[in-house]
Design a protein around this nucleic acid. Structure first.
Lengths: 342, 342
DNA sequence: GTGAAAGCGCTAACAC
DNA sequence: GTGTTAGCGCTTTCAC
């Protein structure tokens, strides 16, 4: 199919030779400089085609100091690396990022930072020119990674606000509002005894959702909201639901802080013979793919994860292009998705 | 925290200066050359520490022609890029690859190749030095990408055997054996009327599973196996199961070519009042995470995806290190995982 | 064992 | 407009 003469990749020198111009002119044409004679442009373009020339990234990077690539850093607390992609939340975020950057011709490199050592290596990776900057997806409030990037003055943008006040850009969801949406739905349904299954306290989003839910409930004259704590896994949702059912048998509505736990809750309710939503109404959070197919369909709070991911990428690209711009944050609004469960 | 003097990254020159040696010696120490005086080693190491030196990847790449990074190319047929990570199969493969390579200090870049244009760009990406080689995860038998990589003499390894005979390394599962395992289970349970829900004909794995299932059934004296065709999504599994139930009401056992479809099948069976496994036994394929939590627990054929991914990475690394080695294939064995559904 | 110097392929002044 | 040239930071002969 392809008929390369030499075995090495053609260089700019080869192109210039074939086109009968200087390397500089060839370079100008290839980089779309305005100030080139139309005829030479054609000559060079033809030469590029015949030689099959592709500019060498390393050489470019070396001279202009930009790699043109970015890192997608997944910073988990434990070593649960494999499951990251199994998690529908990470899956959607990663997918959104990859999709958006593909359009820009950028292929993010995946970096797992699930230990102090891995975090140090992630920093070194960017420093040595592995990427111009990083997209940080970490949920733990005490994750030291954002601080490390700021300390090193490396461009980075977070998904979810940082645990400590840190001069860094981020995108986030208005979790309070999402929780309020859930509260209103449950109250409007006529639920009298409403509880919540919360996420791990170390995760800011979980804190926000629980706090927001309590506030909204208080505004509806319900100052007391029983809570069971899970860790965002399906199993923990089962456990929490079982506990709630034991401690509060008259329960008739529950807000679960993510869909995975909600699935577990749904199953426990079914096992205990409670009909959903007639006996107990359930509202989840995320609008994850599996949740859409749950039985019964899960009423939930949707986050525009793909949009958020795209915006995160945009913020980083802007920061890389102009290192002087100030940190900004973009907060997205959640949306109530009504299905059968509430 | 960090107290960098200049704002630019320290270079080898800086290290050499601080250590009081030449660049060459500093380079030798940093690259672990044997032939260096122990004392200079110490001096250089100290200088590295005080300067906070990190070798520049682009410069290294430029001189030795290796980027030290690899591409993970996901080659879908349609433009369904975002869902890639939502799919538990891709999720596990991607996770396995990332996990394995992280240990080697390599962070794969994710490349979506879901159109002819995207495929051409993927090739160009590797050619320009974006990566030393590619891990190709594509399931469609007619995917042109493997051929393109071979034509360009770019190192690549496939997940799943190529559709056309192609001189390229790959890892794969013994799908025949997996299907036979399923057949035996169903027969051993005493099922009399056994059907199968197959995957898309364009996917080799789907072909293999159906063919293998028929063969195994024939060996058990069951030459006739009704089939309904799905496309590996949950919805298509529902449709296929409904059709099977309509056309073969006496059905009492079904082999479903992947877990996602099996989930859909399970739900349709429940909706139709068929008890699983008493009325209809179901065997899936994949042992995906969601399937493990299905209700009832899904009996399925497990693939060691993480091991397969790791082996795929190993093969590529070996090929990059020595371009002369011949293509090899590594076939993994599936395993029957018994839960409640069969 | 150690240093000097030549490039790897490219871009960007700088002259013309 | 176009060509010449000096590096970008590193590894690696090649002398010493």
């Amino acid at each position: 199919m392809s008929t390369k003469s030499a075995d090495r990749q053609p260089t700019l020198e080869d192109v210039a030779l074939v086109a009968g111009v200087s390397r500089a002119t060839a370079s100008r044409v290839i980089n779309g400089s305005k100030k080139v004679n139309a005829q030479m442009i054609r000559k060079v373009q033809r030469a590029v085609k015949t030689t099959g020339y592709v500019p060498n990234t390393a050489a470019r990077t070396l001279v202009n100091g930009k790699t043109g690539s970015i890192a997608l850093v997944l910073s988990g607390s434990d070593g649960s690396a494999e499951q990251v992609f199994g998690d529908p939340f990470f899956g959607r975020v990663a997918g959104g990022v990859v999709k958006h950057l593909s359009n820009e011709g950028i292929h993010p490199s995946l970096v797992l930072a699930d230990s102090d050592e891995a975090r140090a290596k992630a920093i070194a990776y960017v420093r040595r020119g592995g990427a111009d900057g990083a997209l940080l997806v970490s949920t733990h409030a005490d994750d030291p990674l954002p601080g490390l990037f700021v300390d090193e003055r490396l461009p980075a943008v977070l998904f979810a606000r940082p645990g400590r006040p840190t001069p860094i850009s981020f995108v986030d969801l208005d979790h309070d509002k999402g929780a309020a949406l859930a509260a209103e739905r449950l109250v409007a349904r006529g639920c009298r005894n409403i509880a919540t299954i919360s996420g791990p306290p170390a995760v800011l989003a979980a804190q926000d959702r629980e706090k927001g839910f309590r506030q909204a409930m208080a505004q509806h004259g319900r100052p007391y909201v029983p809570v069971a704590i899970g860790n965002f896994t399906r199993e923990s949702g089962e456990l929490a639901m079982a506990q709630l059912l034991r401690d509060h048998p008259t329960l008739d509505g529950v807000f679960v802080a993510n869909d995975l736990m909600a699935e577990g809750a749904l199953q426990v309710l079914r096992d205990h013979g409670r009909r959903v939503p007639d006996d107990v109404a359930v509202v989840g959070f995320d609008d994850s793919l599996p949740a859409r197919q749950a039985e019964p369909g899960l009423t939930t709070i949707a986050q525009p994860l793909e949009e958020m991911s795209a915006e995160m990428a945009r913020l980083l690209l802007a920061r890389i292009a102009d290192p002087t711009i100030q940190p900004t944050s973009v907060i997205f609004s959640p949306r109530l998705v009504i299905r059968e469960s509430a």
